[in-house]
Nucleic acid binder design. Sequence first.
DNA 1: CCCTGATTCGC
DNA 2: GCGAATCAGG
Length: 199
Amino acid sequence: MSWTDERVETLKRMWAEGQSASQIAKELGGVTRNAVIGKVHRLGLSNRSEEGAEAAPEPVAKPAAAAPAPEPKPAPEPAPAPKPKPAVAAAPEPTPEPAPQVATFNRRPIVPAGQPLPPQPSANEISPEALASVREVEKRARKLTLMELTERTCKWPIGDPATDKFWFCGLPSVPGKPYCEAHVGVAFQPMSSRRDRRR
DNA sequence: CCCTGATTCGC
DNA sequence: GCGAATCAGG
């Protein structure tokens, strides 16, 4: 891979946005973070501050709600809409994943108005052990913020996104999965037997 | 250990 | 110019 104008442009844009070198490298593909850093320096924009330009935009975002996919995969064009919904995982998983139930047990989840929440798993069949495990593990959640999540941290949302009482599990995720052991247990269920009979 | 950017230096 | 290796740090 070489530094085509287009790739350089993407690099510049992402760097300006506060994306890390490794993130940029992933986006571009075919290069390592070292390459990105090297290029950044050669371009002379090592310092993220730009004279007479934007007022240093904080890294990525400071969402009041939630802005999931920190990885705008394609399109070097559009700015990543920081508006998405409580959906989180970016799992290349074919497994049916019943959107994480965001908080609340005795109440219908309070969704930040607007975005339709994906199909609720509702009263599905999750082993009591799994549920117990989840309750247990959530007490030890690292309570990470959106920006603290990495590919190795559990991205299971805990709490109500509409309030301050919201964070992500953050415990070590199962390799290849977006969640920790406990949350994988409730997130990934086998093709339900007869639920959903038709269609 | 995970991650960050910075620097060096052979290519 | 490029980027792996290395350094320095959180």
